[in-house]
């Protein structure tokens, strides 16, 4: 076990963990931040997506020893304007079905909007293709992202 100082949702926390422990399990099992989900353990499904310095990152394959001083934001700490617009849009479009993948979907969508405030279909495909939704809410996710992006235009 080693002690790691990690910046999570704006606070620096110290966690005791084995160096190879994926950030996902540090969040879930050591910090009780269970909004980030396990889906595959191999960066195949995106359910575990968090932001690492604003970039969508699969926490299931990122060892805690690799986090360093990078800023981690999880669904629980996602609070900027883009996030608010996305979350409101998610409600308006009634996007989730079972909801299990949706934290990861929103994290990916928020990272997309942060770098591209007017994503077209191709940009949405590229940013969201790593997030599987078994319930099949893709059409609504696409519509919700576009709607949130459009909301961002109007001050």
């Amino acid at each position: 076990m080693a002690a790691y100082k990690v910046n999570i949702n704006g606070r620096v926390e110290t966690v005791e963990a084995e160096p190879d422990t994926p950030l996902l399990w540090v969040l879930r099992d050591k910090m009780n931040l269970t909004g980030t989900k396990y889906g595959c353990g191999k960066a195949l499904c995106g359910a575990c997506t968090v932001h690492l310095n604003g970039v969508a990152t699969r926490s299931c394959v990122l060892p805690v020893s690799g986090v360093g001083e990078n800023k981690v934001v999880t669904i629980e700490g996602l609070k900027d304007d883009n996030a608010t617009r996305l979350q409101q849009s998610w409600i308006k479009h009634n996007v989730p079905q079972c909801g299990y993948c949706q934290a990861g979907q929103i994290m990916s969508a928020a990272a997309l909007l942060a770098s591209n405030n007017k994503p077209d279909d191709a940009a949405i495909d590229a940013a969201m293709n790593g997030n599987i939704c078994r319930c099949g809410t893709y059409q609504r996710i696409r519509a919700a992202i576009k709607d949130a992006a459009a909301q961002g235009d109007t001050p």
Binding site: L33, T34, G35, T36, K37, T74, I75, E76, Q87, W90, I91, K92, N94, V95, P96, G99, Y100, Q102, A103, I106
Partner: peptide, 15 residues
């Protein structure tokens, strides 16, 4: 819209 959506999109829903 679903009653659980607000919890789901904030990572508060319990599985």
């Amino acid at each position: 819209s679903g009653i659980d959506v607000p919890d789901i999109i904030q990572g508060k829903a319990v599985y």
